[in-house]
Design a protein around this nucleic acid. Structure first.
Lengths: 231, 231
DNA sequence: AGGTACATCTCGGGT
DNA sequence: ACCCGAGGTGTACCT
């Protein structure tokens, strides 16, 4: 990875076009072709002010003393491009950084889905998993189950559920119910946290809400009596 | 801004939890309190593998020779935390980097909305803007207009419109039409590009689609005869 | 290649 | 503080 601290102007043209006046910035050039321009404060804080995602082609110009004067980054046959005009190089270094290794994440939607598949009864007594990623012609619904009364139940799993999650499940239900056998399929929105507006919209659409406690799902803690106290 | 290249282990616990085994990584510590851990390849390429957004509290430990051995980053009273155990420091530097300056973006949704406000007739003959960001109880619709026949028209502006945009406009229309005076309000989805599936869904919901040419909106180019060739 | 959904999304604007 | 929507979203997965 190359790290360059330089006084520079940056212009980008592609999906939009931007110009950054002269200032001291960090230029970060990853081995995978990603190129980023960083400022040190303000917004955005955890995002570069300008960047090019790989694959990119880099072109450099140096003056007679070997000092960087210009960097051009191209992508998509030049449809996207960034130009860095450098007036002063303050630091230039290169380091061997390891490539990203496996990173296990816990608590994301996939894990909640995994846990719920093992214990669907947390969405209602007698609930049984029929199929995960049940296909519809506009995308798969996370879980398809049958409840204690043999009724079909489509479950949409989210980490945090907003109104978009309700809209998503509604779209699926509309498709699913076109099958005469599934006409009475009901919907459950299951999430670690459900926004108030999403609850209101879910109620209006006849969709049940279940807030999940991941530690309970994992079996690390006993469920509390109020677990099903939603709707 | 501080840049540290070090062999280290990283663990994060907060919104999710992750563990990263020992490897050489770049640690980036911004003046605004943002902290990032970078690998050099793999995915995601333009995002750090681990990070903490400001505000953060940093805590460092050094050995007898003054070499970094541990960094702890805390946030939100310790609810979110990252621990970096350092076995070898390869490089450590600090630079004065300028704070983010103003960055003008063109071609994003806001600019399209601006241009459309100045020239609503691109969404239909006789179209007049009544109000921008027309409020509903589930959020504002981008533009509220009246067409040549005095009919209300709600316009949702997007850069790229997918089915989620159609769903969003449908939700707004459902609310808007609860007002008896607006019962016949129609909807237009206006975007630089509209996905085929979104067109299908829009047609099913009686929503019109208008694909916009930003250069024409800006007055840089003459409209082509097929501008309204949508449905 | 195109469509769909997830993300520790991040970020800005509103209430 | 929370909610909502935009993003040059990026990224994986599927068709």
């Amino acid at each position: 990875m190359r790290l360059i601290v330089a006084r520079c102007e940056v212009s980008y043209a592609g999906r939009t076009s931007t110009v950054l006046g002269e200032a001291v910035r960090l230029l970060m050039c990853k081995a995978d072709g990603a190129f980023m321009v960083w400022a040190d404060g303000g917004s955005p804080s955890v995002k570069p002010i300008n960047w090019m995602a790989p694959p990119t082609v880099l072109e450099e110009e140096r003056d007679g003393r070997g000092s960087l004067t210009r960097i051009a980054v191209r992508r998509d046959a030049g449809a996207e491009r960034m130009e860095i005009a450098i007036s002063e190089v303050i630091s230039e270094s290169e380091h061997e950084i390891d490539t990203g290794a496996s990173l296990a994440k816990e608590g994301v939607e996939r894990e909640i889905q995994d846990l719920l598949c093992e214990a669907p009864h947390f969405c209602g007594e007698g609930m049984r998993l029929v199929r995960r990623e049940w296909p519809t012609d506009i995308g798969p619904v996370d879980l398809m189950c049958r409840d204690g009364e043999e009724r079909w139940v489509a479950i949409e799993v989210k980490r945090v559920a907003g109104i978009d999650a309700v809209a998503q499940l509604s779209r699926y239900l509309e498709r699913i119910r076109r099958d005469p056998e599934m006409r009475s399929c009901r919907g459950i929105l299951a999430a670690k946290s459900i926004k108030p507006q999403a609850r209101v919209m879910a109620q209006a659409e006849g969709i049940d809400c279940v807030e999940l406690d991941v530690e309970v799902l994992r079996g690390e803690r006993e469920p509390e009596l109020t677990l099903f106290g939603s709707s």
